[in-house]
Design a binder for these strands. Structure first.
Lengths: 100, 100
DNA sequence: GGCTTACGTAGGTGACAACTTACGAATGAA
DNA sequence: TTCATTCGTAAGTTGTCACCTACGTAAGCC
């Protein structure tokens, strides 16, 4: 989960995730969406995303296709859902112990 | 959402969130859970969490009580859920266009 | 074999963030 | 008012991360 958060905290990496969430794109196509950033930088972003499991890589000749792996979000969502549960439990305790 | 991620990416800040998710704690009580970190550092972490809306602050005399605000996770969860939806939609398209 | 295309890796730079010690502000008690 | 308690703020240091340019690798084409 640390790796997932490290990857997600960078705005450009989140933008990359949005690009490949419904379509498989090559590294070049992805880089083309960031004219203000050099291509090797995008390569590094893709590596971080891949190491975090947030995207998968498929090689075809010299090209590499990337697409999102939403499964990687599961631990993060579990972490957050824990908060909702605990909050509700705490609220319940308060209500029961202090009837208005 | 950027502020929420910036706050969450720090392991100690996530630990603080866990501490105050089911109980209201003072800054001192929270700092006591991190013997290897100076108290002002915890103060700074609390500020980041507060600015992100992840915790609320209540002052009582010289003490300040903190507790978690799970509502702050909503935009992040919405972002992630978008991926599940798009993934399902993409899968549906593939299935319909390429009947086994 | 040479050349092009597509992409990653290496190494160095600048900015930012987490940490520290020292100090300040505000409340409460003697 | 003086002192202690509780906590935040200020300022400086260090490590990490995003970025760049230069180079390396691997596949396809002439």
């Amino acid at each position: 989960m640390q790796a997932v958060l490290d990857a997600m905290v960078e705005p450009r990496r989140r933008e990359i995730l949005r690009l490949v969430r419904s379509a498989e794109l090559t590294a070049g196509a992805i880089a083309a969406h960031f004219p203000d950033v050099a291509r090797p930088t995008v390569s590094q972003h893709l590596r971080v995303l891949r190491d975090a499991g947030l995207v998968s890589e498929r090689r075809e000749g010299t090209r590499r296709f990337y697409r999102s792996r939403p499964e990687a979000f599961v631990p993060l969502v579990a972490f957050i859902e824990d908060f909702w549960d605990q909050k509700l439990a705490a609220l319940k305790r308060v209500v029961e112990e202090e009837p208005s």
